[in-house]
């Protein structure tokens, strides 16, 4: 479970403080598949990092009960000088998992065999992305956090990603942050809109998208008047 209590987050901009999250209190449990629809530059990725406790809020508390994933598919920790397998082994060990099991899983999942032993700097970005997703699926968590990413690669591989995530979500919860209502409606059972730094409850992803669009339109009108 992830609990947010009065979470505030803002950025300094040349025009003043840009409040991204203004006192959000929410709770996401293992049985939830929560879709959060957010507009551009609304703090979507920031909220994902805060949920994963990679970033601290300026105010408020983030509590984890059980293990919470990093944003699904993250492959930024891969060192260019290490092979795909070595990078995976290091992450597996950091997470207290058997490197052999996690490497075997990633090989099986991606269909990569010897290619996984090539160093990161010669791995094509698409392969890195596949390994990043496979790594997220190889390690079991109680809650998964996704920043737009529910699958990578071609249609066939994305289908494999969806099936793997579905399997994981039988025993775990999901907080999925996206700009697209389509994906949110497909995957989630609870819906929120991130607008004006607040989470607004909605009955579908589509409605959440409309709430976000309406808020954006109001903002743009306000700017036009100024």
């Amino acid at each position: 479970m992830i609990r947010l209590v009065d979470v505030v987050r803002y950025h300094d901009t040349p025009t003043g403080l840009d409040v991204l999250l203004s006192g959000i209190t929410a709770q996401f449990s293992r049985s939830d598949r929560v879709g959060i629809v957010a507009g551009p530059s609304s703090g979507k990725s920031t909220l994902a990092r805060i949920l994963a406790k990679i970033e601290r809020p300026d105010r408020g508390v983030v509590q984890h009960f059980g293990r919470v994933s990093w944003p699904i598919g993250f492959s930024g920790g891969f060192h260019a000088a290490l092979s795909g397998a070595d990078n995976i082994a290091i992450t597996a060990r950091l997470m207290g998992q058997s490197p052999a099991r996690v490497i075997a899983f990633c090989k099986d999942f991606t269909g990569l065999d010897d290619e996984i032993d090539r160093i990161g700097m010669v791995l094509p970005p698409a392969v890195r992305a596949k390994l990043g997703f496979a790594l997220s699926m190889a390690i079991p968590f109680d809650m998964y956090v996704s920043d737009e990413n529910l699958g990578v690669g071609d249609a066939e591989f994305r289908d494999r990603c969806t099936k793997a995530l579905d399997k994981r979500l039988q025993n775990a919860g999901l907080v999925f942050l996206s700009r697209s209502a389509t994906y949110v409606d497909r995957v989630c059972n609870k819906f929120l809109a991130l607008t004006d730094g607040q989470l607004v409850e909605c009955h579908s992803g589509k409605q959440a998208e409309e709430v976000v669009k309406a808020a954006l339109a109001t903002k743009q009108k306000g700017r036009a008047h100024v």
């Binding site: 293990r67 997470m95 099991r101």
Partner: peptide, 16 residues
């Protein structure tokens, strides 16, 4: 793939 997901290994308490 599915088999290894089914195994769902017991989590250690992360690394020390």
């Amino acid at each position: 793939m599915d088999r290894s997901l089914d195994q769902n290994p017991i989590l250690n308490n992360s690394s020390s």
